[in-house]
């Protein structure tokens, strides 16, 4: 049957090897009147059976749903409202954080957010020179009790906090946090600005964006509507209201003000190197521009000899006619 499908191939092979070619030759003569196997009804029927059977078997093993890519309709509501770019002071290429805002933002975090949200990666020492003085930071740390130890008798003991301690968490573990918040886990806020699409704009928009749901939106029990939150239903309720905290520096504590301050604070928490980074950027700019200027000058200097030389063609005088 191979010879009937590829007669030329078989005849060529057969030319080299005598006994085989004879056998093949005889078989091909016998089947020369039949149709080739690949064109036969048997082939068609069996390949169809194979295709159908593999499909059935696959369905039995994995289900047909996994064969197709998962259907997903990402509506605007499911993506959440894209936050508008807010004119934060630190957004320029050479702008630093507004540190008065960081200080106020810390106050908002401490008095409002820290009831549910941890700030694991920020230690008291991080605040020193950023928003608070050493003495202020020490005093704030000492107000919190930390478990330390073991001591000489092998027991853990409580001691007042020191600068090296990290911010205390409101809940001992994730399960406790979920249990305390109707199943929703308040995320740790240390890197939340980096962790969310839209960064600081998103945080500000989310905090100020609570509103009544538009018609037709159904919220699950205990959920609040926030258009900036993907899906719209957020477990956290609106927390910032006018006059919720009282700022030391006398800034009126409006909702927008508190949202801005705490956003700047969280942005600092996520990017504590921010100011230094931009300073280094300017330093790099100074060095690179200076080196560029020097290299351009040196190039001109070195090339001045070549560029200012004059090439004069002094043709030989024409030979005189006649004998030398």
């Amino acid at each position: 049957m191979l010879s009937s499908a590829f007669p030329r191939l078989v005849s060529r092979v057969g030319a080299g090897v005598k006994p085989l070619s004879k056998a093949r030759f005889s078989s091909s003569t016998s089947s020369s009147t039949q149709t080739p196997f690949l064109a036969s009804k048997t082939a068609i029927a069996s390949s169809t059976l194979l295709a159908g059977g593999s499909l059935v078997w696959y369905n039995h093993l994995y289900g047909l749903g996994s064969l197709l890519p998962e259907a997903s309709a990402n509506s605007a509501a499911e993506n959440g409202m894209h936050p508008t770019k807010m004119p934060f002071e630190h957004y320029g290429p050479f702008e630093t954080f507004n540190h008065a805002s960081i200080r106020r933002g810390y106050q908002v975090y401490r008095e409002v957010c820290s009831a549910c949200h941890s700030l694991d990666r920020i230690a008291w020492r991080n605040l020193v020179g950023v928003s608070h003085t050493v003495d202020e930071a020490k005093a704030m740390a000492e107000e919190v009790e930390y478990t330390d130890g073991p001591n000489d008798e092998g027991e853990m003991f409580q001691r007042p906090g020191k600068l090296a301690d990290y911010m205390p968490a409101p809940y001992p573990n994730e399960e406790a946090a979920r249990a305390g918040n109707g199943g929703g886990l308040p995320p740790d806020l240390s890197l939340i600005v980096k962790a969310r699409h839209g960064a600081a704009d998103y945080i500000y928009s989310l905090l100020t964006g609570y509103c009544d749901p538009p018609a037709g939106v159904k919220l699950a029990d205990g959920m609040n509507y926030n258009p900036y939150f993907p899906g719209g239903g957020i477990a956290m309720a609106r927390v910032l209201f006018d006059g919720l905290v009282e700022y030391d520096d006398g800034t009126p504590a409006t909702t927008s003000q508190m949202a801005k301050d705490v956003t700047v604070f969280l942005n600092w928490a996520a990017e504590p190197e921010h100011d230094q980074r931009k300073k280094m950027g300017l330093q790099a700019l100074i060095i690179l521009s200076t080196l560029t200027a020097i290299s351009l000058y040196v190039k001109r200097f070195k090339w001045s000899y070549l560029k200012t030389r004059k090439i004069v063609y002094d043709p030989p005088k024409p030979a005189r006619h006649g004998p030398l």
Binding site: A76, A77, H82, T84, G209, P214, A215, G216, P227, G232
Partner: peptide, 13 residues
């Protein structure tokens, strides 16, 4: 199942 989320987002934007 119609809702006004998209219209609302346009306003918000």
């Amino acid at each position: 199942g119609e809702d006004c989320v998209e219209e609302f987002f346009h306003v918000l934007h």
